[in-house]
Design a binder for these strands. Sequence first.
DNA 1: TATGATAATTAGTAAATTATCATAGCGTCTACTT
Length: 488
Amino acid sequence: MDLEKLLQKHFGYPSFKTGQKEVITSILSGRHTLAILPTGTGKSLCYQFPGLIFPGQVLIISPLLSLMQDQVEQFKRYGEKRVVAVNSFLSFEEKQFVLKNLMKYKFIFLSPEMLQVPVVIQKLKEITISLFVVDEAHCISQWGYDFRPDYSKLGEIRKQLGNPLTLALTATGTRKVREDIIETLGLTEVTKVEASVDRPNIALYVEKVSDYREKESRVLELVSKLRKPGIIYFSSKKSAEQIAQLLANKKLCKVGVYHSGLDQDTRILIQQQFLHDQLDVICATSAFGMGVNKENIRFILHYHMPMQMESYLQEIGRAGRDGNPSIACLFYAPGDEMLPVQLAEGELPSEQQIAWLFQRLVHAEINFQELKELGGFSDVQWRIVETFLHQANENSDFKGIQESFLKFVKERLQVKRSYITQMKKWIDSCYCRRECLLQYFEETLTVKVPQCCDYCGIEFQVYQEMNQELVTQQTEETWQEYLEKILT
DNA sequence: TATGATAATTAGTAAATTATCATAGCGTCTACTT
C-alpha cells in the first residue's frame, strides 16, 4: 500500500511529518502503539488515516470538552461528516439520537467520564471498534490517581469492549508515564514511537530572585521588553489576577487572565482573543494551554514553579510552534517549593481524616454527604475516598481497607513529593539546562544550539521587542504632524 | 501570624532582654457528569 499516495489523495499533504508514518504503519499492521510526538506534529492524522482504511469505528478518548469540539470541527472542515462528540454539550434528545445511530459515525469522541455511563458502554458494545485512541494519554498518569479517577478505569473499559487495537498519544512521557499508560490500559506488546522532547528553538532560562518583590519587578521588566505574545504561568489564581492587574495598570501590554475560577464563556472569550492577537499576554494557571494551537507564542514565563518536570515541558512547549526563536523563563524565590508541596498534600486526605472516617464507618454511619462535610474533605479528596468506600461495600474488612488506603495515600504523597524535588533539582542544577532536562526524560543532547540556556549563555536581545523608544517617537511625530495639520 | 524596628526594662551606667507596635505577602492547580 502506498501510504504517501493515500495521504495526498485524502488529505492533500505531499509527505508525512516526523513520526506520523511510523505510527500509522504500526497501527495498520495491528500493533498497539504508544506514540510520543511533540505538539504540532499532527497527531490526529495518526488515527484519522487508519480510520479511513479500517472497516469499523474509531473511538477517541479526549480530556477536554473544548478539545473534542475543536477536533470535530476540524474533521468537518476537511469534509469528514461522520464524526461526533458524545458529551454533556448534547441535550438529552440529541444524546439519545446519537447513541441510537452510533454505527453511522466513523469517529466518536468521548470523555473518560462518559465511558462510565452504563448505557454508553452498552451501545459501544454493539458496534465494531477498529481503533481505541487515548489522546493526551499522559492524563492517565497525571490525573488518573486522584483528580479524574475515571482515567484509571480506561483499562477496564477497554476489556469490556473486547480489547480493541489501541493507540495512545502524548507529547511528553517519562518512563513512569509510559509505564502508567501501558499498565492502566492493560496493553501487551506495545510498539513505541518516540520523538525527542527537545525544542531547540526555545531558550531555557532560570533566574533566582531573593523575594517576591524582586520577582514581581523582574517579571514586569521582562514582559515589557520581550517580544510578544506570551504566557505567564502561576500556581495561584490570585497572583495571576494581581500581576495581570499590574500589567494592565502600567499599560505594559494587552493582558488577559485565565483560570478555572472564570466561567466557561469568559474562558472561551479570553482564549479566542489571545488566538486572534487581541491580547499580548495571558496570566494563567495550569488550566490554560491544552489544545491551544497558536504558532507564534514568543515567551513562556513561570512566576511559580510547576509541580513536575512533565508539566514544565508541556507548558514551555506551547512557545515557538512556528520554529522561530522563543524563550522560557522561570523565576524562583526561596521557599517557592512550599506552594506545590501544599497543593500536593491538599489533594490527598490526611491520616487523621482517614482515621476519623473509618471510625465512623465502623459505627455504621454511612451518610456520605454528611461524612464528607464533617470530615472536611475537599472534592478531590472525597473522590479518592469514594473509590475505597466502594471496596468497603463489597467487603466488610474495614481494617484491611483502611490500611491499604493509608498505604495508597502515603505512596502517592511520596511520588508527588519526588516530582517536586526533581523539579527543584532542575532549578538548582549547575550545568546546561537543556542537557539536564533531556536527562530527566532519558535522552541525551546531541546537537548543541546557539541560544541554549542561562548556563551556556543567551543573548537576550534576540527575544526583545524592537526598540520601544523608536516606536513611541514615531507615534509622537505623527501626533505632532496631526496636530499641526488641524491647527494650521 | 511572623517579622523587624523601636522603645522600655533591668541592673548598674553598657548591653542584653522583653514589650510594643507597625508592617506586610502570606501564599491552594487541574474536569467531567447530572
